[in-house]
């Protein structure tokens, strides 16, 4: 599989302060990739380097195998965290303008514009000024203008911030659809729970440094602590349960147990069934990315 983007020890300093300190990661083609980190970790600095708004002071950025150059911005769609449009411009003109800046010719831009307006069922907005639209409507326009040139790589910086649930779902579905059609997506956020739902691969950065990189499932597997949740309806738990593992939490009809490394879950389940405990639920508790992150950085961030 080809990599759309490769960052190798990218460095960015602002006078005395290092915003990006030798960050490396790779985004394979066709994936939804999460760029995670708390506020101030350096996410926006990294994105600005990828979008060629700023230049890295060190390291290398490869786009589809080539060093980043001036032809690449037209292959990237970027929706910044702080969104904005020309308030006095008409919706149609606005999207056309942004599309042409991305290198589409007038005819193509118009085709794509009509396609998307139709798709979102907002054709009658075309001649409205942006300031006449509600915030949610403006977000849709922003999204269309980000993807109108069919970018190879779509960069979304906190795409769901300020969106109501209906619009958030709409955008989420659109992201999935684009991804199925082959668009690689870089999804930047500090909201870890969103990433777990959406992304396959992530990189976690803190204070400008790589902390963790890999597939979400692998990372969770690596950080799991052999915790199991058992829920049961009737019967008593066997008294020797602690020979299987350490009991973390014991409530009425539910227990959390940390399995000893030499035991396995099947043995525990067998043991419970043997003691006529009517098991309702037997589930391994995997750590959330949030927990993993806090565990790694010791709960400290630059917030």
């Amino acid at each position: 599989m080809k990599n759309v983007l490769e960052l190798k020890k990218v460095l960015k300093t602002y006078q005395e302060y290092t915003a990006v300190n030798e960050v490396s990661f790779t985004i394979p083609e066709g994936k939804i990739f999460g760029l995670l980190g708390p506020n101030g970790a350096g996410k926006t600095s990294i994105i600005r380097i990828i979008t060629t708004i700023t230049r890295a002071d060190g390291g290398q950025v490869l786009f589809a195998g080539e060093p980043l150059n001036t032809a690449h911005p037209s292959l990237i769609g970027y929706m910044p965290e702080e969104r904005g449009l020309y308030k006095k411009m008409k919706v149609g003109e606005q999207i056309m303008y942004l599309a042409q800046l991305k290198g589409l010719d007038k005819k193509k831009a118009k085709e794509h514009l009509d396609h998307w307006l139709k798709k979102f069922d907002i054709e009658d907005w075309k001649n409205k000024k942006v300031e006449e639209l509600s915030k949610g409507m403006q977000q849709k326009i922003q999204f269309i203008s980000t993807i109108i040139h069919k970018p190879k790589l779509l960069i979304l910086d906190e795409p769901f911030s300020g969106l109501d649930p209906v619009n958030a779902n709409l955008i989420r579905d659109e992201i999935y659809e684009l991804n199925r059609a082959g668009t690689t997506i870089l999804f930047s956020t500090h909201r870890m729970e969103q990433v777990e739902q959406i992304c396959e691969n992530i990189v976690l950065i803190n204070k400008g440094k790589n902390v963790l990189e890999g597939a979400v499932a692998d990372i969770k597997e690596n950080f799991k602590e052999n915790l199991f949740l058992i829920e049961y309806k009737s019967g008593n738990l066997p008294s020797d349960l602690d020979t299987y593992g350490q009991i973390i939490e014991n409530k009425a009809e539910s227990v959390v147990i940390k399995l000893h490394p030499e035991k396995n879950s099947n043995e525990l389940l067998k043991h419970l069934i043997h003691h006529e405990v009517q098991v309702h639920l037997f589930q391994e508790i995997l750590p959330t990315l949030n927990e993993i992150f806090i565990k790694i950085v010791g709960g400290k961030s630059d917030e």
Partner: peptide
């Protein structure tokens, strides 16, 4: 206006 509108970041990712 472009700066306070925040559109400038979108524009300079293209030009």
């Amino acid at each position: 206006e472009e700066k306070t509108n925040r559109i400038v970041e979108v524009i300079i990712s293209s030009v």
